[in-house]
Computed example of a mutant assay.
Amino acid sequence: MVHCPECKTTLSDESDIEFIETDAVSGFFKASKRFYIAECVDCGANLGSGVAGAKAGGGGAV
C-alpha cells in the first residue's frame, strides 16, 4: 500500500491523486510539452512531477 508522506492517507485509487497541468511551452520542434504535478487530494502535498509528450495541435516538426 502507498501512503502520502505528509498526511499518511492511503493512496489506493486514481481519485486519490490529482494531476495538474502547470505549463505548456513550445520546444525546438514546435511541439508543446506538458508539465504535470501530482498532488495528494486530501492535503495537497506534491507527490511528484513530470513531462508529457507533444500536445495535440502543437505543430510538429517544420
Rank of each mutant, 00 (worst) to 15 (best):
V62R: 12
F35M: 13
S12H: 03
G48E: 03
L11G: 01
T9R: 09
T22G: 10
A54C: 12
K55F: 15
P5L: 08
I17E: 00
S26W: 12
D16C: 05
T10S: 04
L11S: 01
K30Y: 11
E14S: 09
G58I: 02
A54E: 11
C7Y: 02
G48S: 04
S26D: 14
A45E: 11
K33N: 10
R34H: 07
E39W: 00
H3C: 10
G53E: 11
F29H: 09
D23V: 11
I20G: 04
C7M: 04
V2Y: 08
S26L: 14
D16S: 11
E14V: 05
E6Y: 09
P5Q: 06
T10C: 00
S12G: 15
K33V: 11
K30D: 13
V62C: 06
K8Q: 14
S12K: 04
S49D: 14
V51M: 13
G58M: 03
A45H: 07
L11F: 00
V41S: 10
V51W: 04
D42V: 14
A61T: 07
G27T: 08
G60K: 01
R34E: 10
D13K: 07
R34G: 10
I20H: 12
S32C: 08
G50S: 06
D13S: 14
R34W: 02
T10I: 02
E18A: 12
A24P: 00
A45D: 05
L47E: 03
A31G: 09
R34S: 14
Y36E: 06
H3F: 15
Y36N: 07
G59A: 06
E18W: 01
T10P: 00
E39T: 15
I37W: 05
F28P: 07
D13P: 00
A56T: 10
A54D: 14
R34T: 14
V2K: 13
V2R: 10
K8H: 13
I37L: 13
L47Y: 02
S12E: 08
V51L: 14
D23A: 09
P5T: 09
S32N: 13
Y36F: 15
V62L: 13
C7T: 04
P5N: 07
G57A: 14
C4K: 02
G59N: 04
E6T: 15
G59E: 03
L11V: 02
G57M: 06
F35P: 01
A24T: 15
C43R: 03
A31K: 13
C7K: 02
I20N: 11
A61V: 12
P5R: 07
E14C: 05
